[in-house]
């Protein structure tokens, strides 16, 4: 807070706080590092959550939003339950994911593409569709990897665990009206 205030750049910090339930807890970070130490992907993150929180307070918008930290988060919530300052760390990382996509800074990760493919099926069918999701995601993003996934797909088929057709909910119109309204109200993307 102090650093950001001195630099006169508090807007990034405020945006993160505003978009996260209990985000103001971020101001209470004591830089203990319990988050990074608890994280199963901690060693593969560009910066640990602890460092990210320092950078948010210092107003380092671009560095934070370009980091792979938020995309390495697997939502296991160990950091959140272990944080001695009750900072909703996983939820802050979700906020950073959204801000990073909106800012066009999510690079070097397939996670946003997977999320977009997933959202496509929810918006158009009301249900996730595993075969379609995998096909769409791999075709659009890493066609070569599809070859490698082939045998696994066949095993799933052989065990009756893969469907060729998506399920569509009955009242898709209702869901889509809700989605459209939600996008209008307060969504920045």
């Amino acid at each position: 807070m102090v650093h950001a205030a001195i630099r006169g750049e508090t807007s990034f910090l405020n945006e993160v706080i505003e978009e996260t339930p209990h985000g103001e807890r971020l101001l209470h970070c004591i830089q203990c590092g319990s988050c990074g130490g608890s994280c199963p992907n901690g060693p593969d993150m560009d910066y640990s959550p602890r460092a990210i929180f320092g950078m948010i307070q210092a107003g380092e918008r671009e560095r934070v939003l370009s980091a792979n930290t938020q995309w390495m988060c697997v939502s296991c919530y160990y950091c959140t339950t272990r944080c001695p300052q009750q900072i909703p760390i996983t939820d802050i990382l979700y906020t950073l994911k959204r801000m990073s996509v909106r800012a066009g800074l999510a690079k070097g990760t397939d996670a946003p593409a997977l999320a977009k493919s997933f959202v496509h099926y929810v918006d158009n069918y009301g249900r996730a569709f595993e075969l379609g999701l995998a096909t769409r995601f791999y075709l659009l993003n890493k066609p070569l990897a599809m070859v490698k996934m082939g045998p696994l797909g066949l095993k799933m088929l052989a065990h009756g665990r893969m469907s060729f057709l998506p399920t569509r909910i009955k009242n898709l119109k209702q869901l889509q009206a809700i989605i459209q309204k939600a996008r209008e109200l307060g969504e920045k993307s």
């Binding site: 939502s75 999320a115 959202v119 939600a182 969504e187």
Partner: peptide, 12 residues
């Protein structure tokens, strides 16, 4: 929406 939907849109 699994973990994917709120990675892109919070209110939706």
């Amino acid at each position: 929406g699994a973990t994917e939907y709120h990675s892109l849109h919070r209110l939706t």
